[in-house]
């Protein structure tokens, strides 16, 4: 057996525990491309142990106070990058103002992984099979980034570029995610199809809709596990806006999905099967949305 392919011990690295954002950015800049930030470590540590990555320096960002905390800021809920997945389940502010994240959280991994994995880490990694990155799209969230040239905010629509590729430049840090506050005229639904609870989904979807009486005024539908990045179903959205959620319009949205999703070739889940599952899921979710979710 080839040891390199089966290694479960990381290569040697140096470890630095940053106390502030500036310290973390400075350390990364001085170590060059060879550094990685570590947050919950729930994706990075396996990658190091399998030697898929071998940085010279790990910069621990979990002790940076500024990256913590959840609070209202104007029309947004500011969710610190270090917010743990488990906090999405227990924090009252999340349940009240970002209930879609609360609904998605039980589907993210297993309890012990949720105890350490962070929201910022999940969004930074941008795994196309992950729940939270796709939900930032459905929520029209903004990602706050700190880098050498200061702070900026990037809309989720512009953040996810390609497979594990985002608007984050090397050495930049996600500091927080800003989610527009959930409103009384909105409804949300989330679900995924997986072979086993806690596994990555075959297909998953979450959506946020604004209603004017029984008609959809606005809707954002976001899929994950369907391609190289979390994907909004814009054609399906367009098929629904201005209409009520009756069988005819749900069927139209399901049909439109073929224009939104182009699942990749895959031996276990061929593209046609994944598209079919996405349609089934979309139909179920729109049905639930129509019932008041």
């Amino acid at each position: 057996m080839d040891f390199e392919e089966t290694a479960v011990k990381a290569r040697a690295f140096s470890y630095f525990r940053a106390a502030t954002i500036d310290q973390a950015l400075d350390a990364h800049a001085r170590a060059g491309d060879d550094a990685r930030f570590i947050a919950g470590g729930q994706s990075l540590v396996p990658a190091l142990s399998l030697r898929l990555q071998a940085p010279r320096l790990l910069i621990d960002i979990t002790h940076i106070a500024e990256l913590r905390g959840i609070g209202r800021e104007g029309a947004y809920l500011r969710i610190g990058a270090l917010t743990r997945h488990c906090e999405m389940l227990t924090e009252p502010l999340i349940a009240e103002f970002a209930p879609l994240l609360h609904a998605a959280a039980p589907f993210v991994a297993h309890p012990a992984i949720r105890n350490r994995g962070t929201f910022g880490g999940s969004v930074a990694l941008a795994d196309p099979a992950s729940e939270f990155p796709a939900m930032t799209l459905a929520l029209d969230a903004e990602i706050e980034i700190a880098g050498a040239s200061g702070r900026r905010r990037v809309r989720a629509d512009e953040f996810f570029i390609d497979l594990f590729e985002t608007a984050l430049q090397p050495g930049e840090l996600i500091t927080a995610i800003y989610v527009p506050l959930f409103k009384a005229d909105q409804r949300f639904v989330f679900d995924e199809l997986a072979r086993r609870r806690g596994d990555y989904a075959l297909v998953g979807c979450g959506m946020l809709a604004t209603f004017a009486s029984d008609r959809i005024d606005d809707i954002r539908i976001s899929f994950f596990s369907v391609g190289n990045r979390p994907t909004r179903a814009k054609a399906a959205e367009a098929a629904l806006i201005g209409f009520g959620l009756d069988a005819e319009h749900i069927a139209a949205a399901q049909a439109a999905l073929a224009g939104d999703l182009a699942p990749p070739e895959n031996d276990e889940v061929p593209p046609a099967m994944r598209l079919h599952l996405a349609r089934v899921l979309l139909g179920r979710l729109l049905g639930r949305l129509g019932e008041g979710a």
Partner: peptide
């Protein structure tokens, strides 16, 4: 509860 293999 956390995985002690996923932490240095």
């Amino acid at each position: 509860a956390v995985h002690s293999c996923l932490m240095f």
